[in-house]
Amino acid sequence: MSNLTPRDATTRAADTDRIQVAQLLTEATAKGRLELGEYEQRLVKAYAAQTYEQLDRLTEDLPEAAEASHRRGASKPAPKTLLLAILSGFERRGRWNVPGQITTFTLFGGGVVDLRYADFTSANVDIHAYSIMGGQTILLPPEINLEVRGIGVMGGFEHNVDGTGTPGAPKVTIRGFSLWGGVGVKRKNRKPGGPEPSVP
C-alpha cells in the first residue's frame, strides 16, 4: 500500500523515477516474482506513467518496493563504457547497467551489445559504434525507442529496424560507421527464463 499523501500521489514523475521503477521491476523478475509477460506489461506502464501514484501501483505488491527508495532520488547514471574487439571479441549480455554513452569498436573482431535484460540508468543513451573489417550486433527490447544515424562504407550499417518503441521509454541513438564491416541493429523479444547464454 502506498504511503503517499494525495498531494504526493498527483506529483508528476520524472524520467529518473520511471527508470528506478523499471529497475525495481527487473529485480523482481530476476527473483521470480513476476512472469515475463506481466513484467513487460508493467514495464510499458512504468515508462508511460505520469505521476508517483501510477508508479506506486505497479510495485505495491512487490517486497522490493519496501526495500528500495525508488522515487524522488537523483538517479546516478553508470559511467561511460568502451567496448573493444581488436582481433578478438566482446559481449555485454544479461543484467548490466546501461550508461548514457557507450562506444564500441571492432577491428578484425566482433561484438554483441544486448540491452534486453539490462538496467537503463539514463533516459537517453548514445551508442557510438565503429566496425572496420569486423562486425557487431546491438540487440534492443521491443519497448525501447530508437534512432540510427550510422553509415556504411563498403559495409553495412543497419537502419531498417522493426517496431517503434513505447512513449516514455528510454531512447537509444546509434551513430558511427562501418568500413568493410557491419553494424547490425535488431529488436528481439526477451525469452522466459532470462538472458540467453553467452557464446564463447
Rank of each mutant, 00 (worst) to 15 (best):
L4E: 08
L4T: 05
R7I: 11
D8Q: 15
T10E: 14
T11Q: 09
A13Y: 08
A13T: 13
T16I: 05
R18E: 05
L25R: 10
T29A: 14
E35T: 11
G37Y: 00
E38A: 10
Y39G: 00
Q41P: 01
L43C: 09
Y47N: 04
Y47P: 01
Y52A: 09
Q54S: 05
D56V: 02
P63Y: 12
A65E: 07
A68V: 11
H70V: 06
G73Y: 07
P77H: 05
K80F: 03
L87P: 05
G89L: 03
G89V: 04
E91H: 10
R93T: 13
V98T: 11
T104G: 00
G110E: 11
V113D: 01
A118S: 14
F120S: 04
F120I: 10
T121E: 03
N124D: 12
H128L: 07
Y130R: 06
I138W: 00
L140E: 07
V153M: 06
G155I: 08
H159S: 01
T164H: 13
T166Q: 13
T166S: 12
G168M: 13
A169E: 04
V172N: 00
I174S: 04
G176V: 07
G176K: 02
N189S: 12
N189F: 11
K191N: 10
P197K: 12
P200G: 09
